[in-house]
Amino acid sequence: MSEPTAPKPADAPTPEEPTRRSAMLWITGGVGAAAAAAVGVPVVGFLAGAVRARPIDWVPIGKVTDAALFPVNETRLHIFRNPIHEEWDGDSAKTGAYIRNLGKDDKGQEQFWVFSMICAHLGCPVTWFPQSALFMCPCHGGVYYENGDRASGPPPRGLYKMPWRIKEGVLEVQAPHLPTLQDTLEKPSDVVQLGIIKRDRGERA
């Protein structure tokens, strides 16, 4: 029994208090949600932005007729800076392609084999041995023939072929992403291509 004038204990129910408190709760919830969204939207946008569109870039390697660059029936490692890179990539922006000039085909068109250095097994760099005409991988012993076919070891397929074209007499290679089994250079995965640029591979001479 308390006196009518004594201050009520805080949790004693009064007619108007439940509505006031629940209004307060609603407001807090609303303001809290707004605050969370204000922070969340840009943060999520930032994180999602890390996955960028893949531009299609072509890298000129050299004049098709330059016999020093592309001797017929010899496989050479050509090194270039991948246009897909950051300013501060340093040496890691360098990329290599094994290119073999196959000479002219029946129609008089120059033909090339262009292979990525990245082993189709688990991505180590393969080395070309002209004496035995084999590509060997230092990691788990994958070996490929000169035409890129798997010769032995754990790789489940041949070397990754890089799209190429001849434009105004210059051999160009498509700037490569890191090729993996489901995301090869010839057939990039749709998963990471969402809404990105229509693919122009140019003429396959």
Binding site: V51, R52, I84, S92, P176, T180, S189, V192
Partner: peptide, 14 residues
């Protein structure tokens, strides 16, 4: 797979 790769290396290349 390909999506995880991009997430892991933060883009199309290492």
């Amino acid at each position: 797979g390909p999506g995880i790769v991009e997430l892991l290396i933060g883009g199309p290349t290492i």
